[in-house]
């Protein structure tokens, strides 16, 4: 169920002994049926979605174009809401 192991093996005191390991926590599994999809023909690289996304799920590339990392996208739909060009649609998964 969890990669953390038995309570006897876990570090005590709620502590996380390894820094910067939150990337191991894949929040993508939280999506409940919808995922954002970018229509790059409409995108003007304003980066609003990148600023508003609460997870590290909008990936900003060298040329300021954006992509979605579905390992971390929790499907909240904020990016679709804030995109001034309507370039992001929430589409049903499967």
């Amino acid at each position: 169920m969890s990669c953390l192991g038995s309570w006897k093996e876990m570090p005590i005191a709620t502590l996380i002994p390894e820094p910067g390991n939150s990337v191991k926590y894949k929040t993508g599994s939280w999506r409940a049926g919808f995922k954002p999809v970018i229509d790059h023909s409409k995108c003007v690289k304003c980066l609003m979605c990148w600023i508003y996304c609460p997870e590290p799920a909008i990936v900003r590339k060298e040329d300021d174009s954006v992509e979605i990392n579905y390992d971390y996208c929790k499907g909240c739909g904020i990016c679709a809401k804030v995109c001034p060009r309507g370039a992001i649609q929430m589409v049903p998964e499967r």
């Binding site: 876990m10 502590l15 996380i16």
Partner: peptide, 27 residues
Amino acid sequence: PNVLDPSKPITLGPVGLPDSYMEFKRQ
């Protein structure tokens, strides 16, 4: 072990969701 020390960074008091909360209480 639960001492904050910049030369040996740890996180104390993070979220512990359904996958870990019970284990901490059992400890």
